[in-house]
Amino acid sequence: MKARVFVTLKNGVLDPQGKAIGHALNGLGFGSVGEVRQGKVIDLELSESDPAKAKASLKDMCEKLLANTVIEKYEIEIK
């Protein structure tokens, strides 16, 4: 089973990298770009075949390592 985890900064946490990307896009002439927030995508291969178990295990991984929940939130996608 394959899974994808999205880790992004929580709303309200300043994202200087997102801001810089936004400025750069504006500079390239993409005038319609407003706020930009960036994050990480982590692709994982799991030997688990039960989606519910996989999801529970991925949640645990996010809480323990993949995300720092002081500043980040995460979303799990099972493929």
């Binding site: 300043l14 200087p16 990298q17 002081v70 500043i71």
Partner: peptide, 17 residues
């Protein structure tokens, strides 16, 4: 120490990048 929870908060990318 912040990652371990021994101290609160987090250290993020410098505002000036």
């Amino acid at each position: 120490l912040t990652e371990s929870g021994l101290l609160p908060g987090a250290l993020m990318r410098n505002a000036g990048l």
